[in-house]
Amino acid sequence: MEVVDPQQLGMFTEGELMSVGMDTFIHRIDSTEVIYQPRRKRAKLIGKYLMGDLLGEGSYGKVKEVLDSETLCRRAVKILKKKKLRRIPNGEANVKKEIQLLRRLRHKNVIQLVDVLYNEEKQKMYMVMEYCVCGMQEMLDSVPEKRFPVCQAHGYFCQLIDGLEYLHSQGIVHKDIKPGNLLLTTGGTLKISDLGVAEALHPFAADDTCRTSQGSPAFQPPEIANGLDTFSGFKVDIWSAGVTLYNITTGLYPFEGDNIYKLFENIGKGSYAIPGDCGPPLSDLLKGMLEYEPAKRFSIRQIRQHSWFRKKHPPAEAPVPIPPSPDTKDRWRSMTVVPYLEDLHGADEDEDLFDIEDDIIYTQDFTVPGQVPEEEASHNGQRRGLPKAVCMNGTEAAQLSTKSRAEGRAPNPARKACSASSKIRRLSACKQQ
């Protein structure tokens, strides 16, 4: 084909351009004929944790799935940006308080904090938690009735009371019990989460009196709706648990309003109706937990002794299953770290194939690490110290990083047969305790 000078094309009309061969290198194709290559998922490591896909996002930050490269346990990490926390009232204080509380709590029905990582340079905090497959609110939203069968609701409620009793025994008032803060594992274990607005009572406090509340409006008791200066913290949790039980068994809320002012007005009056299909035992329990006067409201001991709580409820309806993943529609909620794991395991070791967030990740503290002497050669063979940054567990980050890069360049065919977990650990520049 004859090559045409581009400067001469402006002298031709459209018809003349076609005659000189423009149609031979300008093609129009339908979008259905285009085959897009999927974007390669680059592996990203935060300390010893391999990052997966997004699980959810809230006002405080994002939650992603991660894999512990040492234990191969599935975890969830809450990623918090200090810049964003400053824009939220009491944001930083709530996060630090939640970390302090979770560090000393150990119960099967309370979410466990596994690790805390802090990135000084990017001003990011990573709260590594045990993995929960789904939230209770997500399960309720997945069915038209917006409720659980009585047998399933009873099982979840009993676990909620177990976890709540443990928190109260530790002198902690949750203040925000609701389905949105109750998570579930694949085995059906309920976990109380989000202790950001919780309050730890003084060890020598005479009672459970509280003065502040930041919980969700629909789950607040009349004493808070009416603006009382002080109130019983434990009875606030009992009320919120009662509203939660009402919601998961009926699909409704005892109090509603077009806006928060109308909602608080209705809560302050204390008038509500219980659907007739709840039955006398459940209705009596709800009335005891939603008692207007805090002094007359049920205690956890009274809830445990109630006939509806103690009764064994046979399954009359099919239980609400864990819904498919909202993004991938995966009904099994498979591990989202698998594509990243395959990338590390299947590809040659190259620095361009993975990302390490930083050479140094500070753990379990908000301060910069200490310094240790770096050896410097002298005339008599002895070495003197220069400062060298280290990880919180004493690992020399720069030395590990250099060693990792040197190993990656060394030709050794046997290394390709290593397991995925050992490869992740070798790529991680800074081991965590």
Results as ranks from 00 to 15, higher is better:
332 W>S: 08
165 E>Q: 06
133 V>G: 07
80 L>I: 05
265 E>G: 05
107 H>E: 04
385 G>R: 07
49 Y>S: 06
198 A>T: 09
132 C>M: 10
7 Q>V: 11
250 T>K: 01
262 K>R: 08
199 E>F: 11
324 P>W: 03
170 Q>T: 01
401 S>N: 11
287 K>Y: 04
375 E>Y: 13
246 Y>S: 01
400 L>E: 14
106 R>G: 03
378 S>D: 13
146 K>V: 01
263 L>F: 04
30 D>R: 15
411 P>N: 13
234 F>I: 15
336 T>M: 03
265 E>A: 10
45 L>Y: 05
381 G>V: 03
181 N>T: 00
395 T>K: 02
253 Y>L: 09
301 R>Y: 14
260 I>S: 12
335 M>S: 13
196 G>R: 00
331 R>W: 12
39 R>A: 07
347 A>F: 11
32 T>K: 04
161 I>G: 01
367 T>I: 11
229 D>F: 05
154 H>I: 02
181 N>Q: 03
265 E>S: 12
149 P>D: 03
88 I>E: 13
201 L>A: 14
266 N>L: 03
106 R>T: 15
370 G>Q: 14
136 M>Y: 00
140 L>Y: 00
80 L>Q: 12
287 K>I: 09
337 V>Y: 05
244 T>F: 03
390 V>R: 11
217 P>V: 01
33 E>N: 10
422 S>D: 14
395 T>S: 05
283 S>T: 12
254 P>A: 00
127 M>W: 03
327 D>H: 08
311 K>R: 11
380 N>H: 12
379 H>I: 13
14 E>I: 11
316 A>Y: 11
389 A>V: 03
257 G>A: 09
22 M>Y: 14
199 E>I: 05
375 E>A: 07
232 S>K: 15
90 N>I: 04
30 D>L: 06
97 K>W: 02
220 Q>A: 10
93 A>P: 15
140 L>S: 00
328 T>V: 10
201 L>E: 02
333 R>I: 12
157 F>W: 03
218 A>L: 05
6 P>C: 07
108 K>Q: 11
63 V>E: 01
351 E>T: 13
353 L>I: 08
239 W>A: 02
96 K>R: 08
120 E>V: 07
376 E>G: 08
269 K>V: 09
317 E>F: 02
27 H>W: 04
45 L>A: 04
258 D>E: 03
117 L>A: 09
321 P>R: 09
382 Q>G: 11
304 R>A: 12
323 P>Q: 02
84 K>V: 01
181 N>E: 00
223 E>I: 01
123 Q>H: 07
332 W>G: 13
30 D>P: 15
165 E>L: 02
6 P>D: 15
238 I>F: 01
415 R>F: 05
350 D>Q: 12
142 S>D: 13
10 G>Y: 08
202 H>S: 08
256 E>L: 13
35 I>N: 06
27 H>D: 08
256 E>Y: 11
369 P>Y: 11
425 R>S: 13
185 T>I: 02
170 Q>S: 05
393 N>P: 14
116 V>W: 02
49 Y>F: 07
389 A>W: 06
217 P>L: 01
13 T>A: 12
81 K>I: 08
171 G>V: 09
51 M>R: 08
422 S>N: 03
80 L>V: 02
264 F>P: 11
433 Q>H: 08
124 K>Q: 15
229 D>V: 02
300 I>W: 09
194 D>E: 00
215 G>D: 01
64 K>A: 14
56 G>T: 01
117 L>E: 12
288 G>F: 02
394 G>W: 09
137 Q>L: 09
184 L>D: 00
